[in-house]
Design a protein around this nucleic acid. Structure first.
Length: 412
RNA sequence: GUGGGUGUAGCUCAGUGGCAGAGCACCUGGUUGUGGCCCAGGUGGCCGCCGGUUCAAAUCCGGUCAUCCACCCCA
């Protein structure tokens, strides 16, 4: 029979990697919870139009990377390629953004993009994100930035750098786009094919084109910072001021425009060893674009797959206490000790299988346990349990009730 | 979407036209109530798949699929 394998670009996260993910997720969630964020759980699929409208028709994500399909009623659905659009839709739909509100939410889950898999890139990948709704204060941008850094530190990611830019509000962008069009119209012949198209559809993206000929032109392009309005200039300056006074490694990058169209104002991404592991920014128009009134917002998402790869967290095998039954019929005693040890926080596994003692020890050894409790005929007679410390190889006998003694022995 | 590398035992790989291999892992025994170390033995393969060339193909040719890497893009 042909073996069925996981589909291309999708993988199983198994231990010890999965244990590492548990730790990273819970540390990140703890930090966000302490900052007032609450969890929401969102659908993995949405109507396709939610993404095409918010992310942008001319983005790679929408044009060629979406897992889109028709359901049995012919509805156009898409497995979410990112989390923000769905989060905003949910906030509006559940009427959480009405009136003067301040909502802080976090989410985690699988995202899907039909890309060619390579290192650090999967078709199903996991994000953990947070969003602040209802604040137009620069302190909101600064806070999520600092929280991102705090989380990366907490999960032992080293040598990362925040790249930040401001792509301005609608007004400044309108002016800038006009200037850009004027400037580039005479140079179209020197741009790549994609950028010629972008000239009409999404001219800002010419700024971060990686094509070498476009690169040359980019240096000549007047930077966006010259066209930001007074408010946006001031906002960005204050953002830099606040974040730079923290201990964050942060650099300005005038070319940073992000691959999703809904951003306004401050945008940032975190690079670590050449990979983008976290990204986000402000999106003051997204809520209203989805019919939710004028609610400013900002947020970010980190890629769990990539963060885990950079994280230096190491996971030890769980130090188990392994109870081996030798002659059979000692199940009652074994379960009693197991229960008592577990309530003291010691993970205990009881091996009820019938097998020679040598096998049991071999099993225990493979599971990486720190101690084995042996209960057989001899122990039953004396109401005791023999405990072998697998690290030292020593063995000692304890009374069945002597939980404290057992714990002390296996811990030394 | 574009370009490149690699597919042989569970894993890492050797084998470049002539009997399918090694190390590690696994199983059994040495040790029937004691793991690791050691020793002896053993299981395990449509050589990714389909076709072609040949007396003969893991080996050469064509295709295909998978996988890894890079680009584009992105978390």
């Amino acid at each position: 029979m042909k073996k069925i394998k996981a589909i291309r670009g999708m993988r199983d996260i198994i231990y010890p990697e999965s244990s590492k993910w548990d730790i990273i997720t819970s540390r990140a969630q703890d930090i966000l919870r302490l900052a007032g964020f609450r969890s929401i759980y969102l659908p993995a699929a949405e109507y396709t139009s939610l993404f095409s409208r918010t992310i942008g028709e001319d983005t790679d994500i929408v044009k060629k990377e979406m897992y889109s399909f028709k359901d049995k009623k012919g509805r156009d659905l898409t497995l979410r390629p990112e989390g923000t659009a769905g989060a905003v839709r949910a906030m509006i739909e559940n009427r959480l953004l009405e009136g003067r509100v301040r909502e802080k939410v976090m989410y985690t889950g699988a995202m899907f993009r039909y890309e060619k898999p390579q290192s650090g890139r999967y078709r199903q990948f996991y994000q953990l994100g947070c969003e602040i709704f209802g604040s137009s204060s620069v302190y909101a941008d600064a806070e999520i930035t600092c929280l991102a850094a705090e989380i990366l530190d907490a999960v032992l990611v080293r040598d990362y750098v925040f790249r930040v830019n401001s792509i301005g509000c609608e007004e400044c962008r309108k002016n800038y786009v006009k200037e850009l069009r004027k400037f580039l119209s005479s140079r179209l012949s020197r741009l790549c094919e994609d950028c010629v198209r972008r000239f009409d559809t999404n001219i800002l993206r010419v700024l971060d084109c990686k094509n070498s000929s476009c690169r040359k032109e980019q240096d000549e392009i007047p930077p966006m910072s010259q066209f930001l309005c007074v408010e946006c200039t001031d906002f960005f300056a204050r953002f830099l001021d606040i974040t730079e006074s923290g201990n964050i490694n942060i650099v300005k990058d005038a070319r940073l425009v992000r691959g999703l169209d809904y951003y306004t104002g401050v945008v940032f991404e975190v690079e670590c060893g050449g990979d983008i592991i976290l990204a986000g920014g402000r999106y003051d128009n997204l809520v209203s674009e989805l019919g939710g009134g004028s609610v400013p917002a900002c947020g970010w998402a980190l890629g769990l797959d990539r963060v885990s790869e950079k994280s230096r967290i190491t996971v030890d095998g769980i130090p188990l206490f392994y109870i081996a039954l030798i002659d059979g019929g000692e199940e009652k005693e074994a379960r009693k000790i197991a229960g008592a040890l577990r309530s003291e926080g010691i993970p205990v596994e009881v091996d009820f299988e019938k097998a020679p003692a040598g096998k049991k020890f071999k099993m225990a050894d493979r599971r990486g346990v720190s101690a084995v409790g042996i209960i057989g005929g001899k122990e039953i007679e004396t109401s005791s349990v023999s405990v072998k410390n697998m690290r030292t190889g020593n063995q000692e006998s304890f009374g069945l009730e002597d939980i404290e003694g057992i714990i002390k022995y296996i811990k030394c």
